[in-house]
Nucleic acid binder design. Structure first.
Length: 258
DNA sequence: ATGCCTCAGCTCCTGAGA
């Protein structure tokens, strides 16, 4: 079983790249973020022809998430139950015995701002919900654009970016609090090259100079961890013409299911 | 360097992203 997450920064623009990528990387489940489209525009047919059924949760202009799957997805839930939110950020479903959660975490813009406070509230709500979700579904995977780095190893210039958005202690505290629920950063379960990032600024040759951040993550629960056989970032789509600023992250599960 | 790209939309500028 293979899983992946990708912030596509507009599915309208990136659909051909997503289809090409799926052809080369026929993962079982792909969660997408930043669709930037309403559900009536979602390309169900194109994904269907590629062998994927899809559940989407979109909105106009911003945000928007989806889950594509080669296997039946059930118990689909949108956003964080009990947390009132106007923005489309989370989609969850059971696929092949795994509770899969795809999320587009708030950006936060700037520490101390109203959007930062929203990000912190959202993170706390996510944590409280996940604590219960893990009881209901011990085999759980949380993946998406977290908009948070774990530590300096995830940051191209930790000195210049000290305590800036995605790198603050407050955000990292919440990320560690998710880990403390019994989750694991799948990427770090395996040896990785230095300066491994999942996002690069469009400006100033960010990708060419590998000035990036690792902010897209796949977390796996205790029960799932023993089955994880690989996790890596695929940088190749960042070399496309008109690329997303994010690269996909993939995970392989050594399991007989389904 | 409160910027350098890119995207959507109340589209030829602005807000947001990260």
């Amino acid at each position: 079983m293979k899983f992946a997450t990708w912030n596509v920064n507009s599915l309208g623009v990136r659909l051909p790249q997503v289809l090409a990528w799926l052809q080369a990387n026929p993962v079982d489940v792909l969660v997408l973020q930043e669709l930037k489209m309403t559900d009536d525009k979602f390309p169900f047919d194109a994904f269907g022809q590629a062998g994927y059924s899809a559940h989407c949760f979109g909105q106009k202009t911003y945000n928007g998430v989806a889950m594509l799957s080669r296997h039946p997805a059930s118990n689909v839930v949108r956003n964080i139950p009990g947390f009132a939110d106007d923005l489309a950020r989370v989609i969850s479903a059971d696929v092949a015995g795994v509770r899969v959660i795809g999320g587009y975490f708030p950006n936060g813009q700037e520490p101390g701002s109203e959007k930062f406070e929203y990000k912190m509230s959202w993170l706390r709500a996510l944590r409280h919900w996940l604590r219960e979700e893990l009881v209901r579904s011990p085999k759980l995977m949380l993946m998406g654009d977290f908009n948070i780095t774990f530590d300096d190893a995830d940051v191209w210039d930790p000195v210049a970016l000290y305590e800036t958005i995605h790198c603050t202690e407050q955000e990292r505290y919440e990320l560690r609090a998710l880990i403390a629920l019994g989750l694991h950063d799948a990427f770090r379960l395996f040896a990785q090259g230095p300066k491994s990032y999942s996002w690069w600024d469009y400006r100033d040759g960010g990708f060419r100079r590998n000035r990036g951040l690792r902010i897209d993550h796949i977390l796996v629960s205790d029960a799932l961890k023993p089955a994880v056989s690989n996790c890596f970032i695929d940088r190749s789509p960042r070399r496309n013409e008109r690329p997303s600023d994010h690269a996909p992250v993939l995970l392989e599960l050594a399991t007989a299911e389904p």
